[in-house]
Design a protein around this nucleic acid. Structure first.
Length: 469
RNA sequence: CGGGAAGUAGCGCAGCUUGGUUAGCGCGCCUGGUUUGGGACCAGGAGGCCGCGGGUUCGAAUCCCGCCUUCCCGACCA
C-alpha cells in the first residue's frame, strides 16, 4: 500500500534525506559559486511566511526597520578586537572596484554591528534618544568551508536587530524580551519547534558579546540546531564606536548595545524538525498552501466542486491550491506529500455522488470522509489541531531524546543520538575540550528549572550538550 | 582549510581498465492514444562543449597536469 520511497530514508542517511527533500520539494538549488544558494519559489514562500511572522513580532517589541549598506570599510571591523578576530576567517573582501585597486579594502558584511554602531554614535545625543531600537532584513556573507543549503551557506538572508540603551539592565531586559517574545514565541507557535533556552558558554559566544542567548531545537536525527540568538554586547561596541549619550545630569555616558538575529537557517530547521520519510511536514502556520484540493478525475463536475471548495476555504482564511487531474493520482499525491502540504482534500466522482470529500492530514495515514458542505467550516479547526499536534510530537520527541547524565563520558554517549543534560559544575575547560574532540558541544546553560541564567557564574547551572549543525 | 570519494541529458547511472564509427540505459520531459480513488501503459520524439582549461596522440568521455563544483569525515560558524 505504501508507495515506494522516492527519498533516501532518514534512518539510512539523514544528510542525504535532507538534500533529497530540499531538491524534490523544489526549495533550493546550489548557486554557481561554492556555498551560495538559489532559493526557489516554494522555499522562498516559506521564508516569506517566517519573515512576516518574525517581522510583526519585532515591530510589536518596538523596533523599527532600517537598511544599512552591504559594503563595510575594513577598518570598521578592526575597531572591536574580539569581533574582528572572530570574523576574519569568514570574511569576503573586495579589493578592486571600478577597475582599480581600492585604497582601503571593503568587507562584505558578515553582520552589521560595526556600521550600525557608527551611525548610532551619530544619531544618539541624549538619554532622550534612548533606547534606539533598530532592525534590518538583509543578506550577509560569511565564507563557509563546509556549506549546506539553508543550514550553512556563504551568503544567507536574515534579520539583525541592533539596539542601544542607557543602562546594562535595560539592554539585558530588551535582549531577553526579544529572545522570549519574538524568537521563542515564533518557534513554538509558528514553526512548532520546542526549544531549550539558555546562554552560550564563553567559548561559544558571539565575537564581541558579553552574553549570548540561544534557542536550541532538536532535529529528527537528535542533533541540535541553534535557531535564533540574542546578544548583550555590553559597552564593547559603544566604546569602539563612541556611542555616548548625555545623561539627565549632563554627563557623557557610554551606551549598552544588543544585537539579535534569525536567518534562512530556520527553513533548514523546519525541514529537519518535522520531516519524515515521505518528505516535508509543514505546520499550517508556515505552509504556503495549507490545503491542496486534488481533483481525482478531470471532469467538469469535479473541477467545479474543487473551485467551489477553494473559494469557501478562502472565505475562511485558508490558503489552498487546486490540483487538476493531469497525470496519475498517486503521483500527484506523492508530490504534495514531499512538499509537506498539511491537509489534502480529495474530490472524485464517487465522493460527489455521495456529497462527500476525502480528507487527510500529512502527519496521519488515515483518511476521513466529510460531507462536502462541512469542508470549509471544519478545515480551520483541523489546521489548528495539526499545528498543535506537530508541536507536541516534536516536544515528545525532544523530551524522549534528552537524558540526564552524571559524567562527561555518558554525555558523549548520549549525544550520539540526542541531547545530554548534566551539571555545568562537571564541565571545566578540560572537559569541554574532551566533548569537542568528539564533535559534541555545550549548546546552552540553563538553570535547573530551564530558565535563562544571567551568567555562567550562577550556581547550580545545568548544560545541554549535543552534536550540532 | 586538511583527509577521502565523485563530476557523462533535468535526476540516477553504464561506458574509461585496454584511446578508434552517429556516446548508451532507467526515470522525467514533448506528441498521439488508452488510462486515472496511492508513483499507469503503448507508440513516436526532443534533449549531450562527456565539469572547465591545457597537454599527449593521426585520433581523447577514456591517458597526463591544473582549476572549478558536489558529497562524506574533521577544525570554524546563523
Amino acid at each position: 500500500m505504501a508507495p515506494p520511497s522516492v527519498l533516501t530514508p532518514q534512518a539510512e542517511d539523514f544528510p542525504r534525506w535532507y538534500q533529497d527533500v530540499v531538491a524534490k520539494a523544489e526549495m533550493a538549488d546550489n548557486g554557481p559559486v561554492r556555498g551560495t544558494m538559489v532559493i526557489r519559489p516554494y522555499g522562498y514562500a516559506i521564508w516569506e511566511r517566517i519573515q512576516s511572522s518574525i517581522d510583526a513580532r519585532i515591530k510589536e517589541a518596538g523596533a523599527q526597520n532600517a537598511y544599512f549598506p552591504l559594503f563595510i570599510p575594513e577598518s570598521y571591523l578592526s575597531k572591536e578586537a574580539e569581533h574582528v578576530e572572530g570574523f576574519s576567517p569568514e570574511l569576503a573582501v573586495v579589493t578592486h572596484a571600478g577597475g582599480e585597486k581600492l585604497a582601503e579594502p571593503i568587507v562584505l558584511r558578515p553582520t552589521s554591528e560595526t556600521v550600525i554602531g557608527e551611525f548610532m554614535a551619530k544619531w544618539i545625543q541624549s538619554y532622550r534618544d534612548l533606547p534606539l531600537l533598530l532592525n534590518q532584513w538583509a543578506n550577509v556573507v560569511r565564507w563557509e568551508l563546509r556549506p549546506r543549503l539553508f543550514l550553512r551557506s556563504s551568503e544567507f538572508l536574515w534579520q539583525e536587530g541592533h539596539t542601544a540603551h542607557a543602562t546594562q539592565a535595560d539592554a539585558s531586559a530588551y535582549a531577553m524580551k526579544i529572545h522570549l517574545e519574538v524568537y521563542n514565541d515564533f518557534l513554538l507557535s509558528v514553526l512548532g519547534v520546542p526549544t531549550y533556552l539558555g546562554i552560550k558558554p564563553p567559548r561559544e559566544r558571539f565575537a564581541g558579546a558579553v552574553n549570548t542567548m540561544t534557542c536550541e531545537g532538536m532535529m529528527r536525527d537528535g542533533k541540535a540546531l541553534q535557531m535564533a540568538t540574542s546578544h548583550e554586547l555590553g559597552q564593547n561596541f559603544a566604546r569602539a564606536f563612541d556611542i555616548f549619550y548625555q545623561s539627565e545630569e549632563g554627563q557623557a555616558e557610554l551606551c549598552f548595545t544588543t544585537s539579535w538575529g534569525a536567518s534562512t537557517r530556520l527553513v533548514g530547521g523546519l525541514i529537519m524538525a518535522h520531516g519524515d520519510d515521505r518528505g516535508l511536514i509543514l505546520p499550517p502556520e508556515v505552509a504556503p498552501y495549507q490545503v491542496v484540493v486534488i481533483a481525482v478525475r478531470d471532469e467538469p463536475e469535479v473541477n467545479k466542486a474543487c473551485a467551489t471548495i477553494q473559494q469557501l476555504l478562502k472565505g475562511h482564511g485558508v490558503r489552498s491550491f487546486v490540483d487538476v487531474a493531469r497525470g496519475s493520482f498517486g503521483r500527484r499525491v506523492t508530490d504534495w506529500e514531499i512538499k509537506g502540504v498539511p491537509v489534502r482534500v480529495e474530490v472524485g466522482p464517487r465522493d460527489l455522488k455521495e456529497g462527500v470529500v476525502t480528507v487527510s492530514r500529512r502527519d496521519h495515514d488515515e483518511k476521513q470522509t466529510w460531507p462536502l458542505d462541512d469542508v470549509a467550516t471544519k478545515i480551520p479547526a483541523l489546521l489548528a489541531m495539526m499545528q498543535q499536534d506537530l508541536y507536541e510530537r516534536a516536544l515528545a520527541w525532544r523530551d524522549a531524546n534528552t537524558l540526564d547524565v552524571a559524567s562527561v563520558v555518558d554525555a558523549i554517549e548520549v549525544a550520539q543520538s540526542g541531547f545530554a543534560r548534566l551539571s555545568w559544575d562537571l564541565v571545566g575547560a578540560g572537559e569541554e575540550a574532551e566533548l569537542n574532540n568528539q564533535a559534541v558541544t555545550v549548546r546552552c546553560l540553563q538553570r535547573a528549572d530551564g530558565s535563562i541564567p544571567e551568567s555562567e557564574l550562577e550556581n547550580d547551572l545545568v548544560c545541554i550538550v549535543a552534536k550540532s549543525y
